[in-house]
């Protein structure tokens, strides 16, 4: 099947029910609500938004850690399932915090070979060979094979995490804030490795981040989320150069730019993210939105195609 994209999702949702305690009523948290996207080979789709917007939930769904409660997730046209071994090998994930995602009691070699032992029937020697290859590829030295995670710096640990994800030859990497725990000079090294690997193995990236300058640099397409919903999506350049949704505009203007001479024209968002347990009626963004009109408080806008991008807003204004 060549026609189907590598990953396609339609109306993907994940709801959690929370018990309210002895007296409070129980409720539903819509961590992710109606996300649709496609991911092609060799491309990077970035998901941006603040904490609580559902971007990590999306990462967990795509990497088959959790199952969606609504909508459909297709890998190459087939319904994705953790029961299918090929699907588990297709997608691998790199987590945000390299200090928490590597087992401190295992040597790097064991950490790297574990995915192969579980997902393939390669011999020990073959596993070792593959580990050496991948370690060299991400810039680790052969003697690192016998060391423990605590002997490495944050940047090196993130390389190990990337190497582990690559062991089973995946075609999609889910990168959940892969550089946000790293220092600036190390961040550039890791971003460069990611770019090289993408070119070499034609990998597709689902890149989750809150850092818009990183996203702008690395992504082909971008999806902006707010409180579990996609509010704007499209080609990265179009969205960044000409954001239409008031939230995207606010997010872009709130991001500090490393240029002291730039004239600041900042859209200040009032208030904070509402509780996902009790989202506001209508558009979830309306209490903080400067363009909110009567209609926004009554009904939630659907994500519709608007010129070049997809947009969920009743009253968009150009910046």
């Amino acid at each position: 099947m060549t026609a189907s994209p590598l990953i396609s999702a339609s109306n993907l949702g994940r709801f959690y029910s929370v018990s309210g305690g002895m007296f409070a009523p129980s409720g539903t948290v819509k961590a992710l609500d109606g996300a649709s996207f496609t991911l092609e080979e060799g491309k990077t789709l970035a998901v941006v938004g603040e904490s609580g917007c559902g971007k990590s939930t999306l990462a967990r769904l795509v990497s088959l850690i959790e199952e969606p409660t609504a909508g459909e997730l297709l890998f190459e046209g087939e319904p994705a399932s953790a029961q299918v071994p090929e699907h588990r090998k297709l997608v691998q994930i790199v987590f945000q915090n390299p200090y928490g995602s590597l087992n401190p009691r295992h040597k790097i070699g064991t950490i790297l070979e574990e995915p192969l032992r579980l997902n393939s029937d390669l011999s020990r020697a073959e596993c070792r060979k593959r580990a050496d290859e991948i370690m060299e590829r991400v810039g680790l030295r052969p003697e690192h094979y016998d060391r423990y995670p605590h002997m490495f710096s944050g940047g090196q640990r993130q390389r190990i995490a990337i190497a582990r994800a690559l062991m089973v030859n995946p075609r999609v990497l889910v990168l959940d804030e892969p550089v946000s725990a790293l220092d600036l000079s190390i961040q550039a090294q890791v971003l460069n490795i990611l770019a090289e690997l993408q070119e070499e193995f034609n990998l597709a990236y689902l890149f989750i981040s809150h850092d818009l300058s990183v996203v702008k640099h690395i992504s082909d397409e971008v999806m902006v989320m707010y409180l579990g919903k996609v509010v704007e999506a499209g080609a990265a350049k179009t969205v960044f150069d000409n954001p239409k949704h008031p939230y995207t505009q606010a997010l872009l203007s709130a991001t500090p730019v490393a240029d002291p001479h730039r004239k600041k024209k900042r859209i200040m968002l009032q208030g904070e993210l509402p509780s996902p347990l009790n989202p506001p009626a209508g558009c979830a963004f309306n209490p903080r939105c400067r363009n909110a009109i009567e209609k926004c408080r009554a009904e939630a806008p659907a994500l519709v195609f608007d010129e070049k991008t997809e947009l969920a807003c009743f009253n968009p204004t150009p910046l």
Binding site: Q156, S185, S213, I218, A258
Partner: peptide
Amino acid sequence: SALLSALPERATGRELPSIPGVV
């Protein structure tokens, strides 16, 4: 100087000028 050019927003190409090694 190297730190400033490692900023993604100042990058011109896909490759970021990074600082080799660690502190």
